[in-house]
Simulated scan of single mutants.
Amino acid sequence: MADNEILFGTVLDERFRLTLWEVCQICEVSAEQVAALVDEGVIEVEGEAPSNWRFTASAFERLKIALRLERDLGVNREGTALILDLLEEVNRLRR
């Protein structure tokens, strides 16, 4: 990154919620890909039906990591769930 490069972003807190459509747009994935991760228990959502799903900031972060593990590293869904759980445990222990 150059010294004069400006970065923009949004800080998400736990009051912030994203819909399934917003998550798909931001992550450039299909609703089916996200639903598969939710169905497998990799990602937890609020709401019963996909049209009512809401993703917290922590669920969204977990989703981004899961998609990266699957897309970039070829990790299967079960491996993704395990890695995410271990990463959360490491972060918990560090705190």
Rank of each mutant, 00 (worst) to 15 (best):
D85I: 12
E28A: 10
E48L: 15
R17W: 11
E89M: 15
F8D: 00
N4H: 15
N91D: 14
Q33R: 07
A2N: 13
E22M: 03
L86W: 13
I83Y: 03
F16A: 08
G79K: 09
N76P: 04
E32G: 00
G9P: 03
E78F: 10
D85V: 15
N52F: 14
D72N: 08
G9D: 08
D72K: 06
A59T: 02
L63Y: 03
F8S: 10
W21K: 10
V11I: 14
R71C: 09
G79A: 13
T10R: 12
P50S: 05
R94Y: 13
V29A: 06
C24L: 02
V90F: 15
S58T: 09
F8G: 05
R71F: 09
V42C: 09
E28C: 05
R94H: 12
L63F: 06
A81P: 01
T80S: 09
G47H: 08
G41N: 13
L73A: 14
D72Q: 09
F16V: 12
E44Y: 15
S30M: 02
A49S: 09
G47C: 07
R15V: 07
E28T: 09
V90N: 09
Q25I: 01
T56K: 08
E46H: 11
D39S: 13
V34A: 00
G9S: 09
D39L: 11
L20Q: 02
R94A: 15
C24Q: 00
V90H: 12
C27D: 03
L12A: 11
L12W: 13
S51M: 05
E5S: 08
D72Y: 07
